[in-house]
């Protein structure tokens, strides 16, 4: 074989190899990102699925622990003698997040109280500002009406309010509606109707709300505190809440 022929053969091989390398690089630049994107999509999909699963609506069909309305407007649900841990729920009947909390863990609160594992305290307040109309009025009307309800029906009425929560910014919780919810849970009578129509407890509720907001330590609604400590995210899954209560019992 002549020298030139050898050189050209070698060059041909090298050119071939370079082409091969370029091709491999191109391929890698397509394949690797594709693989990464598929993995990303899979991880996001799994995370999404698990998030959905962790967000199931809670259910509790058993009886309730005794419920008593306190002079300050808070409502205690606890078996006699159960003093701690204290689970406090700061909520606004017009706040969508509170409805969300109720949906996920309303059942858990009832169960914890009924099993004597916690003293549950509902602390309804109006988080909104008077300038925020109509959500402020809706919130106050709902909460004032709840104060007209005796302890043995209060939690049922509370649940009705969330069930019928008006879309934020729309009118709702009209006196007629509030009286109707009462009928649905077995609260009737002229006294109740008058109490709702006259908004007898509105001022007391507003005063209590302002005090709760001023007292500090309240980031917003909904907030769940166990023995005075904001439990944050844990309150928003059934398992998280049960664990937080168990930890506080130790």
């Amino acid at each position: 074989m002549s020298k030139t022929a050898r050189t050209s053969a070698r060059e041909k091989v090298r050119a071939e190899r370079e082409r091969e390398q370029r091709r491999a690089k191109r391929q890698r630049q397509i394949v690797v990102p594709l693989v990464v994107l598929v993995v990303v999509a899979a991880v996001v999909g799994i995370g999404f699925y698990m998030a959905r699963k962790g967000n199931e609506t809670g259910t509790y069909a058993g009886g309730l622990a005794p419920v008593t309305v306190q002079p300050d407007g808070s409502v205690v649900m606890a078996k006699p003698g159960v003093e701690k841990p204290v689970v406090e729920i700061y909520e606004d009947f017009q706040c969508p997040g509170c409805k969300e909390l109720e949906r996920v863990n309303g059942a858990t609160f009832k169960q914890l109280a009924a099993e004597g594992k916690a003293k549950v305290v509902y602390r309804p307040l109006t988080i909104f500002d008077p300038s925020q109309k109509p959500i402020y009025e809706v919130s106050v009307r709902g909460a004032a009406a709840a104060r007209c309800v005796p302890g043995d029906k209060w939690v049922q009425y509370h649940d009705k309010l969330y069930e019928n929560q008006p879309v934020e910014g729309k009118q709702g919780f009209t006196p007629d509606e509030l009286i109707e919810y009462g009928k649905q849970v077995g609260v009737t009578g002229a006294e109740f109707e008058g109490c709702v129509r006259n908004q007898t407890h509105a001022q007391a509720h507003i005063k209590a709300s302002d005090e709760l907001k001023k007292s500090g330590g309240l980031q917003g609604t909904p907030t769940v505190k166990i023995n005075g400590q904001d439990v944050g995210n844990q309150a928003f899954t059934a398992d998280g809440l049960k664990k937080a209560v168990a930890d506080a019992t130790k």
Partner: peptide, 12 residues
């Protein structure tokens, strides 16, 4: 990530 209900609530 631990609290999907809260996360949904924040978006809502």
């Amino acid at each position: 990530i631990g609290a999907p209900a809260r996360s949904v609530m924040a978006v809502e």
